[in-house]
Amino acid sequence: MSKGYPIGGKTFMALKNLTISFNEGEFAGIVGPSGSGKTTLLNIIGSLDKPTQGEAIVLDQNISDLTHKKAAYLRNINIGFIFQVFNLLPVYTVYENVEFALLLQQYSGKERKKAVMEALDWVGLTSHANKKPDKLSGGESQRVAIARAMVKRPKILLADEPTANLDSENAHEILSTMKKLNKELKTTFLFSTHDEKVMGYLDRTIHLRDGNIEKDIIKKS
């Protein structure tokens, strides 16, 4: 597929006719310098964006064909997002931020509570449940974001440079948490990163440069 952005009468190609597939349960990363098209690729997989040419098939659904509503439903049920800047909801407590993802689905109050506490336990933040995001460190904030993304047990988790705003200790902690969840829940993890620390954890590294795939390396386990 390709993705072009119109810029001043011309089209800037952020993704150039690339072909790639991901396997269920993978722990894969898209690496490449800034501007290479990593975020664009993740956003298309996450149905926030659409390719301008070609097809993106996610969980048997063609992203180009999805209506706003269908795309929202896909994200709601099957896709979790983690962002570089955390994007926690400031007026909510940690607990409520995590619960939020479930409120969009049909969970009973009891089920919600159980799921939220479990998700906070995954990231080791049960004791911070009633804190507001502005009382958290960067590492804690990103762990809340992981809990929020994982609480609904999505099939795919998309993490766009999740460690870019973290020190190396927090970065390692987050990556090992995600690796553990990948093993336990069989969730497919897709990262975008240019952080060396992240690459060590990846089972598969896809190198992107100027919208093209340069290398696709699968680590032998």
Binding site: G46, L74, R75, F81, V85, L89, L104
Partner: peptide, 16 residues
């Protein structure tokens, strides 16, 4: 706006 973007990323419809 970033909050709105977050809602949409979390699977909320725009109508909602």
């Amino acid at each position: 706006q970033s909050e709105i973007g977050t809602y949409i990323a979390l699977g909320m419809t725009r109508q909602k």
